[in-house]
Design a binder for these strands. Structure first.
Length: 222
DNA sequence: GATTGATCATAC
DNA sequence: GTATGATCAATC
């Protein structure tokens, strides 16, 4: 697939995915379908990136750098309720001096997101799952305020050396959870005395209630 | 059943 | 290890 030249071109090809199954999309793209996602958790996201012409690679940039748009797949059920939290980014545990909500990575990453919902049920094979209507989202004032509030709370705790006391329950719409290959992975952080120590890498995740609200706002459903 | 903590693949 | 893409699965 070619790189989309404009937002309109991207949205057009995204809309064209609606109503197709993952099997149809993969077949058209000539991509093999895994039996399940257990050892291919990012497969749907990579499939959409390929089909929509996102710049490949693991660079820390939006999927469509020239458009400033991030692409995210979103598993939902038939009632359009998200089934999983949405990973946003790895949380920096050091170098936070001078970082504010306005210049932080989470805000940049969520500025413009193309959501591609996939109707998911455990008993429906991957290849038969349907793509729902994709939509381009930017946070409204209310959503940004909620995100900013949670980001500030979590970042404050990190800065104060309390990262190991942060649990998934923190945050109303965004939470901090492990983001690593396994629980033995370590990255550097600072404790409450300012001394460096090694801890589990964490990531910011959007909670289900937040992504569900987006769906309601954009698809006018439920 | 929802939520939190753990985990899988791949590139560099 | 860090960054990309997320879902799995044990526990509450």
């Amino acid at each position: 697939m070619n790189i989309p030249s404009s937002e309109q071109a991207l949205m057009q090809s995204a809309q064209n995915l609606a109503g197709l199954t993952l099997g149809e999309i993969a077949q058209q793209a000539g991509i093999a379908i895994p039996k399940d996602l257990s050892r291919n958790k990012g497969w749907i996201g990579l499939l959409f990136e390929h089909v929509l012409g996102a710049s490949a690679g693991s660079r820390p940039e939006p999927d469509f750098p020239h458009l400033g748009i991030e692409l995210k797949s979103l598993p939902i059920n038939e009632q359009a309720k998200p089934l999983e939290t949405t990973f946003v980014s790895v949380a920096p545990l050091t170098g936070l001096v001078g970082v504010t909500w306005h210049n932080c990575y989470v805000r940049k990453k969520l500025a413009r997101v193309l959501w591609v919902p996939v109707i998911t049920r455990k008993d429906v094979p991957l290849s038969e799952r349907l793509v729902a209507t994709p939509f381009l989202w930017s946070p409204n004032a209310e959503e940004e305020a909620l995100l900013a509030q949670d980001w500030q709370e979590l970042t404050d705790m990190i800065v104060l050396g309390e990262v190991e006391n942060i649990h998934g329950k923190h945050g109303q719409v965004m939470q901090l959870r492990p983001k690593a290959a396994n629980s033995k992975v370590k990255t550097q952080a600072f404790d409450r005395n300012g001394k460096p120590f090694m801890t589990l890498p964490r990531g910011f995740y959007l909670k289900i209630n937040f992504t569900q609200a987006l769906l309601h706002r954009y698809l006018r459903i439920n």
